[in-house]
Structures are given as structure tokens and as C-alpha cells.
Design a protein around this nucleic acid. Structure first.
Lengths: 212, 212, 212, 212
DNA sequence: TCCTAACCGAGACGGTACGTCCTGTCTTATG
DNA sequence: CATAAGACAGGACGTACCGTCTCGGTTAGGA
């Protein structure tokens, strides 16, 4: 083991990248994104707004879409999945968090646009979108459920987390983009539906056990 | 005063629009859309494929997005909501219909892209998208529910149709665009969840009646 | 001889052309021409301004350029070649008339543009331009000279009318379009030059006669 | 402080323009111009012919007209005003040079078209046309006259150069575009007229001097 | 102290598409 | 027939971006 590899990262030769730049670009990208949407966000505009050369953008992200993913990801990374003591409370908090995010055109609209791109290129863009964005929303549900399992609130095989995540995220997104705002009534309704489903499922599980 | 001016619609003056053209353009648009996605569908390409001048496109639709909406709408208009005898069967059929549609990148991807555009222009594009696309999916659910009510299967106030529609459509769309295919297992799971929720809701309703 | 042919003009079958229309179109064309120049004058605009269908324009003139020629010709037809008593006075009046016409961008500019078109199509447009426009300017000079001959002021073979016409019209046009205004000083200078040339030519003629 | 910053012009930042491109475009423009005339010269066609993107054209010239001016200017810059020993000989050579240029539709027609554009925009296009084209023709005359003055052939105040230039250029242009070819007879006639005028003017000057 | 590799800004480049405008032709119904 | 109205194929306009490239110049660590 050499001294150089001590910190287990080879310093690349040449001038290192400006640290602040990445932040500035992402910030600028987010602003343009919010103002124009993904399809009308232009690298030219972002570069100008960030006070940076276009080549600097392309040195860091291979294309417009990937920069957009990165810029939106910063918002999705801020999602917090706090422990609220019960599955119901966690779910409510999670749904409200998702609603907050997807209600905003600059994130909800961008997410939809990036999902649309994913449809065209499931391997490339699709993977990036899944790994940077969708997973964050999925985790909101997954974490809540995992905590409920740890708490003993529910049995591990009681919920299909993937299904639940798609239901929660998909419903909220569709409501946000189509019907209008995912307001309190909507969130209440959704929560109630999920709770009802869980209760019925529990009843069925009980009955099955009793039968055995 | 002639009969015509009294009873029939006055023909618009000038040369009438070529009947076949609209169909040909929409067809071409759909092909390009399927091959390239909304953002890479070009009016130039569509016009060439339809054997039509670009100006003819712009005479009929004010922009690329609106043509895309129209082209996709044709597919959404084909949705059939047949009567399968029970709410459960109708819902299953509806969900499978939606899954079929949204699974295909040329409709699912396009729908997402157009929802993204809606976020940028809720009044203009948004309205068109809602009226031409979203409503068709909404109707799948709404019709099924209405039939169940007519049948006496459920009480009129048992379901929030708007919520249910967003849940169904949103879930299927998100699954289609993110996790991958909305396969049989997914559809089964979703149906089960909705059935469970309905059962629990019915139980609650019974209990409330008993209490009174 | 039938009654119909009494006025020696066969009435063409069908609805006769609206008489006022031609005038209105030419007027509108002239306005657009003045505002935009030949290259930016559009049939669409002219038709709209004249309150007439585009097809009416094309029924009367085969192309934009020909309408422009016609419209400009109306102005050139107004040229008056009055008798001012002497060749010098007639020439001055003629030059001033030409200067007035060519100084105005809507006639001078148009004339240049139409000459440019003539270069591309000497037979078609060229002929029309020569017969409707150039000839009017040529006539200013030719008439003056002819009158001087009739008066006995000059000998018939003293002047090359075609050359003189090109010199007068060309000089004035070039001055109008390039250097700026063909002002009084310019007209005076030109007149003087022509007078000088005529005088010297007369001297030469005298000398030649004397020699013989 | 480096030598470069002191003595040589600072290179403009960014990738420098392709040297060969300007030449190639102008060449292509000239060909198209000759074939189609100014109004039918298309940027699209020129770009294709030069093997260059349309954006490259617009990066260098703000509009079609300005490119046309530039392209034509190259021909006008080739005008040579050689010394032929006498004013008469120089004028003859100059007039023949002008005739050669204006006789060709691809320069004569273009010049007229550009003068027409000048009428519509005297400050913008007009200035460019004057500075790139008209001045070259003016210089043919001005140089000949100046040389005659230097030679002592004529007195400095004997000729109004601007007037003379307009007469020569205007006459030749009008003849070229209207009557047809400015042939030898025309050139002879024009030369004779100018010589006559000069002689008469000299006579007048002599007489005035004698009177004093 | 230099060397060298990567960074950065600026902006040119080949492309592609946009949405607008106009030309000249046509197809209607009506006068 | 003429006319108003307007659709149509075609084509060019000038603009806006994309992603690539080529410069001059900067900024580090390693030789």
C-alpha cells in the first residue's frame, strides 16, 4: 500500500474541479427548471445563469437530461422520513411529503418529464431516474413499513411494499398533475383507503389462522 | 329565408378541409411518437410521413404539443368499458385496459410527457390533456362504479370516484414507467387492495348504522 | 353585324369584373409598396388591405411582380411633359419630374427592384417593366427633344435620344438611391453638363460644315 | 506585462473562426446569386452549397441582404483603375470596367436589387451598400479625375466629381438593365458627351478669365 | 522550478427543429 | 364567369439549442 493510496482515492492529475461550480450549476438548473420545465430548460441558459461555460456543464453531465435528473435529485434527497411513532402517522407524513414535492411543478412536472424520458431509454436515463428519484419516494414508504415491522405493529409479510409505494406515489403524482392539488381531503381519503385495506387484510389473515 | 339557413349548420366559407388529411396526420404523428417520444417527435418528420405540408399541421393544431395530445387521444378514445357483471370484474378489466395502454411507451411515455407539459401550462395544454386523455382513464373507473351503483352492488356514497381514479391510474402509470411492467401480480395486488379497502369501508358503514 | 357587337367589343359571358376592384387593389398595392418595398410587399397583405380575395389578384395579374409593375406604372403614367418653350426649359422640367418620382422610395426603390427582376427575366418581366415604366421616363426626354426639333431649335441628328434618356434617367436614379437626394444643385449641374455637351457638339457640327 | 499584451492585438477569446469558411460562403453566395438573383438567393441553398451550417451564415452576417452585399462586394473590389495616360483614356477604361460589371445580371441585377433595399433602409443596408459597392464605382471616376488634376490636364475646380460619377455609373447601369447592353456605341457616345461637356466648360472658363 | 494534465471561459461549428410567413394553386358556395 | 374565403404543397425565413470542437489561459501535483 503506497502513501498515495492511503486515503484510498487516487488524486487525478491536473487542475482539480472547482468545488463551488457544481453547486452553482445545479442551483441555476433548478431555477430554470422551475421557470421553464424540463423540455424548455436549455444548457445555454443554465450555463449563462450559473456564470459558467457550456463546456463545464458537459464535462460533468453527459447530457441535458442527466443534469436535470441531478438537479431534481437534490430536492428529492431532502426528503426526510422521520419516526412518528406509528405506521399511520409515518404514512401520513410520507404522503404529505410526497404531495409537497409533486405539487410543485418544478419537481412534480420535472419528475413526470423524466419518467417520460425513461420510457424512451429505460436502461440509460431510466436507471438514473430510478436510482436518483424514484427510489427516494419508494423509500418513504419502505422505511415507514420497515419501522412498523420492527415495532411489531405489522407482520413482515403483511404488505407488498413495492405495490404500496407505487400506489402512494402514483396516486399523489397523478392527482398533483391532473386533478389539481393533492389537498388535505385527498390525503385523508388516501390514508383512509390504505388503512381500510390494511385492516381488511389483517382480518383475512386472522380468519385464515383461525381456520387452520 | 331558406330552409338551410333555418335548420342546418351554415357551411364555413372557403375550401373545406381535406377529410383524409386529419386522419393521415394523426396516424403519422402516432408512429413518430411511438418511435421517438414526444420531445423528439418533430413536426417536420410528421408532415413528411403524412405527405402533407408543415403549414397544414399548424393550420389544425397550434403547436407540436397539441398535435401530440390529439394523436394520443385517438388511442385513449378506443378504451372500452364493457359490463362484466360485477364491480370487481369491471375494475379488473379497467385496470388491465389502463395497464395495457400505459405499459406501451408510445402512450404511457407520451401521457407522462404531456402531464409534464400540463404542469407548465395548466390552463392551455393542461385543459386539453385533461379533457382528451385523463378523463378517458377516469371514466374507466367512474363507469364501473356507476354500474355497480345501478346494480345495487354498492351504495352511492360508498366510494370517492375521483380518489379511486387517481389511485388506479396513478398506480398503474407509476408502475409502468418506473418499476417496469404492471404485470398480473401487480394487477392482482392492486385489485385485492381495493377490494379490501371496500370491504373494510363496508364494515365501518355497517357498524355506524348499527350504532345509530 | 349583331347588336351585341355594335360597340365592337364582345361582352364576355358570365359575371363581369368589378370595375372598382382593380383600382382598389392598385391603390392598396401602392400603399404596401411604399411601406415595405417590392420584396416585402405580399399578395396576402395587398388583398387584405384592398378587402379582396387573393384569387382576385391572381385572376388579374399572373404574379406579384406584375402587380407591382402595374401599381408603380400608375404613378409613372402621371408624368406630364408640358411644353415650356425651349429645350432647356423642357429638359429642366423633365429632370425635375424624374427626380420627384425617383426620389420617393416607393417609386424609386420599386423601379430599381423591378429593374433587378428584369435582369433575371429580360423577356417576361423585363418587357413589362420597359413597356410600362422605363418608356415613360424615356418619353420625357424624347418628347422634349422632338419638340425642339419641331421648333427648329436643334437638328434632328444632333442628339442620340436613347443615350440622352439613359444619361438623364440613370443619373437621377443613381443619385436618388445612392448619394441621397437629387437636389437643385444636382439638377442644375446635370442641366449645365447637358447644355455644355450640346453646345460643344453644335460647335463641332459648325466646324465640320465649315470645313466641307 | 508580456510583450504580447503590449504590442500585438489581443486574440478574441473562444474558438477562432474557420478561415476558409468565409471565402467558401461568399463563393457559394456568388454562384447562387448569379443563378437566381438576390430575391431568390436562399440562405439554405448557400449554406448547402458551401457545405456549412445555416447558423454559421447568420453568425457572420445578420441577414440575407448583408451576405449578398458582401458577396457582390468581392466582385466590385476587383475593379482596377489603371493609369492610361490621359483623362479620356482613363474614363474610357473606367466606363468599360463599369459596363462589364453592370452588364452581368449577377452583379448589375444584384446592384440594382441592393439599391432598392437601400431605399427601404437607408441607414442600415444603405450604408453598407454605399460603403461596399457604390464607392467602388465612384472611385473609378474619382481616381481618373484626380490623376488628370495631378497631371495638370484639368483644373481642380473644373469637374464636380460626384455629379460625374452619378452620370457615368447611373447611365451605364440604366442602359445595362433597361435598354440592353451598354455596347461600344453607347460607351463611345457617352465618352463623347462627357468630352464635349468638358470642352464647353473649358471654353466658358477661358471666356470668364478673358473677361476679367 | 519547470512539466504536464486537467480545468475553465469563450465561442465557433454542423445540425436539427421551431413556428411564421408567403407564393401560387385549388376547391368550395354564392352572386 | 367573378368573387370571397380559405385550404393546400412547398419553401424560406431567422431563432434557438444541442452536443462537439478548438482556442488561450489557469491551477495544481510531480519530476
Amino acid at each position: 500500500m503506497t502513501l498515495r493510496s492511503k486515503h484510498s482515492r487516487h488524486r487525478r492529475p491536473g487542475r482539480p474541479r472547482e468545488e463551488a461550480t457544481e453547486q452553482a450549476i445545479a442551483e441555476a438548473a433548478r431555477e430554470v427548471l422551475a421557470a421553464k420545465g424540463v423540455s424548455r430548460m436549455s444548457m445555454e441558459h443554465v450555463a449563462a445563469k450559473a456564470g459558467v461555460a457550456k463546456s463545464t456543464l458537459y464535462r460533468r453531465w453527459p447530457s441535458k437530461v442527466e443534469l436535470a435528473v441531478h438537479a431534481v435529485a437534490a430536492r428529492f434527497d431532502q426528503i426526510e422520513v422521520g419516526d412518528h411513532g406509528s405506521l399511520a402517522a409515518d404514512m401520513r407524513a410520507g404522503i404529505e411529503e410526497a404531495a409537497r414535492l409533486l405539487r410543485d411543478p418544478s419537481t412534480g412536472g420535472a419528475y413526470a418529464a423524466l419518467l417520460a424520458e425513461s420510457a424512451r431509454d429505460p436502461e440509460g436515463v431510466g436507471t438514473k431516474v430510478r436510482e436518483s428519484l424514484s427510489i427516494r419516494l419508494h423509500d418513504v414508504v419502505a422505511t415507514s413499513v420497515q419501522r412498523a415491522i420492527d415495532r411489531g405493529e405489522i407482520a413482515p409479510d403483511m404488505v407488498d411494499v413495492d405495490l404500496l409505494a407505487d400506489v402512494v406515489v402514483g396516486s399523489v403524482m397523478h392527482r398533483a398533475l391532473v386533478t389539481g392539488e393533492p389537498d388535505d381531503a385527498f390525503v385523508d381519503g388516501l390514508i383512509q383507503m390504505l388503512a381500510d385495506a390494511a385492516y381488511a387484510r389483517w382480518l383475512r389473515a386472522q380468519k385464515a389462522t383461525g381456520d387452520t
